[in-house]
């Protein structure tokens, strides 16, 4: 099975063809199996992230044919093109720099404020804790793209890109999910709930108005459980879809 792997070394990009040798006739390898075999054979210094091989750690996300997938649980197919996630700046081969996302949450996370820890969280809370932070949801997110002048990091001159070490200015479905978790947690005080909503608006929640919606790598209903919940709570504080369309037209 032949695939193409995009590699970046010391800033130089190249596309390398790799021929995967199936270990049995009926083997349907995952994308990660292909990368591991490439590393064990012809590309020993291939840089890529992986962790648990079981879709739990969330670090092995790469783009296959231009769409983000979790490499350990997505099957590879003949002719696939493997490249680093386009939504974050590439560092080496298939490795992207992720930390600009988490850093934007610094100072925005609330810890529990209630005294009695023995309270049950609602089912929605647990649906959100199934997020593995794979960042597949950044794909086509207009809020996230504001960080890169409305495009992708690759479209910008590296010198003009925002510094991830500062934390990105604009949010994304993952950061909204973390904020919505705070809002759903029964141990969060009312003030904490309000702060979480303020933070969502500050991170650019208005970008969600009129957006067709985000897709989750592990299948969480981001649009319903996160985005709609926050947009509804924000109410008048966000422009309506009509106002937004008008603004765009002018």
């Amino acid at each position: 099975m032949k695939v193409e792997i995009v590699t970046v070394r010391d800033g130089e990009e190249a596309v390398v063809e790799f021929d995967y040798a199936r270990r049995s006739e009926d083997e349907r390898p995952m994308v990660l199996d292909v990368l591991l075999q490439a590393q064990a054979t012809t590309m020993p210094d291939l840089a890529f992230r992986y962790g648990c091989r079981a879709r739990n750690c969330g670090v092995c996300t790469i783009d296959v044919n231009g769409r983000p997938i979790i490499a350990c649980r997505a099957r590879a197919r003949e002719g696939d093109r493997l490249s680093p996630m386009a939504t974050l700046p590439a560092v080496a081969d298939l490795v992207v720099r992720r930390d600009g996302i988490a850093r934007q949450m610094r100072g925005r996370l609330q810890t529990a404020q209630g005294n009695d820890l023995n309270v049950e969280a609602p089912e929605e809370y647990h649906e959100l804790t199934s997020c593995i932070e794979c960042y597949a949801c950044l794909n086509k997110c207009p809020m996230h793209m504001r960080n890169f002048e409305g495009g992708l990091p690759g479209d910008m001159d590296p010198a003009d890109r925002p510094d991830p070490a500062e934390g990105y200015r604009w949010g994304n479905p993952f950061s909204l999910l973390k904020l919505q978790m705070i809002r759903l947690d029964p141990l969060t005080a009312e003030s904490g709930r309000e702060a979480a909503l303020d933070n969502a608006i500050d991170l650019g929640l208005d970008a969600c108005v009129g957006c067709p919606g985000c897709k989750c790598g592990v299948g969480i209903d981001l649009k319903g459980l996160v985005v709609k919940a926050l947009v509804d709570a924000a109410g008048d504080r966000l422009p309506s879809p009509a106002e937004k369309a008008l603004k765009r037209a002018s």
């Binding site: 296959v64 979790i70 649980r73 647990h126 199934s130 597949a136 592990v218 299948g219």
Partner: peptide, 17 residues
């Protein structure tokens, strides 16, 4: 126990667009 939306909704687990 793992209450993710659905296998179909998990875009990260398929290379099929």
């Amino acid at each position: 126990a793992i209450s993710i939306g659905s296998a179909e909704a998990a875009t990260g687990e398929s290379t099929r667009a």
